Computed example of a mutant assay.
Amino acid sequence: MKPKQDLKQRTKLFSLRIIKLTESLPNTQVGQVIGKQLLRSGTSVGANYRSACRAKSPADFINKVHICEEETDESLFWMELLTEAEIIDFKRIENLMNETNELLSIFSASILTAKMNHHKNYKKNS
């Protein structure tokens, strides 16, 4: 599988895992409010990466992957709140949080690489 296709599938699976997690949260006010926030940010990761794969320019790609990075980081925040507020046991979502951190690293590295390549191409064409 090509790296972009692989990451497309990975971010889609991430979104599906977020859906399952939010469906399992307690039906309390806090569980529902945090769950909605997590559902929004977590499912947007895959959608925004898919959009980045169709970027119209290097700058557009960088911008869209930056959104993926922000949404992934926000998802991690909501998961941290869920565990620290003892709404959900850390062990139950530890693997998902590890995947979230890995995706964050991938998006950060992609942004840096794209910026360096864009800068090199800009200088070469100037």
Rank of each mutant, 00 (worst) to 15 (best):
D73H: 09
L7E: 03
I67Q: 05
L13H: 12
H66F: 10
K56C: 06
K123I: 09
L21K: 06
H118I: 04
N125F: 05
K8R: 15
K20S: 03
S15V: 12
T28H: 11
A85H: 10
P58G: 04
E102A: 10
S51F: 14
F61G: 00
E94Q: 15
S110L: 10
D6Y: 13
V45H: 04
K4P: 10
V65R: 12
N98H: 05
L104W: 01
F90W: 14
T72G: 06
M79I: 11
D89I: 12
S75W: 05
N117H: 10
T100V: 01
V30E: 13
T11M: 03
R50F: 04
Q32E: 12
A52W: 12
N63R: 14
S110Q: 08
K4A: 08
K120C: 04
R50M: 02
M79K: 09
D73W: 07
E80M: 10
N48C: 01
T100G: 01
K115G: 05
Q37A: 04
H118R: 06
C53M: 09
V33T: 08
E84H: 11
E71G: 01
T83S: 01
K91V: 06
D60P: 02
D60T: 01
I88G: 02
T72W: 08
A52Y: 12
M1I: 12
F14C: 00
I62F: 05
P58N: 13
I18H: 10
I62K: 01
V33E: 13
N125D: 04
A114N: 12
M116E: 15
N98V: 01
I88M: 08
I111W: 14
M79V: 11
E69T: 00
N63S: 13
I111N: 07
L82V: 01
C53T: 06
C53V: 05
K91E: 12
S126G: 05
N48T: 03
K91H: 07
S44R: 03
K56S: 13
L96S: 08
K56L: 15
L13F: 09
I93K: 04
E86K: 05
E94H: 15
N101P: 00
M97T: 13
S41R: 02
E70T: 03
Q32I: 13
I34S: 03
K20M: 05
K115W: 09
K115I: 15
C68E: 05
V33P: 00
L21V: 12
L103S: 04
E99D: 15
T83P: 03
G31M: 08
H66M: 07
F107C: 03
Q5T: 15
K115Q: 15
R10E: 08
Y49M: 05
D60Q: 05
Q32V: 13
T28P: 04
C68R: 03
F90H: 14
S108P: 04
Y122N: 08
F107W: 10
F107I: 00
N95W: 07
Q29H: 07
L21T: 12
G42Y: 01
D6W: 13
M97R: 14
N63L: 11
K64M: 07
K12E: 14
E80V: 09
K4Q: 14
N117T: 12
E71H: 09
I88K: 08
I88P: 01
K123D: 14
T113G: 02
S108C: 02
V30K: 13
N117E: 13
G31T: 07
R10Q: 05
V30A: 12
E70P: 00
T113W: 09
D60L: 06
R40Q: 07
A59Y: 09
N121V: 00
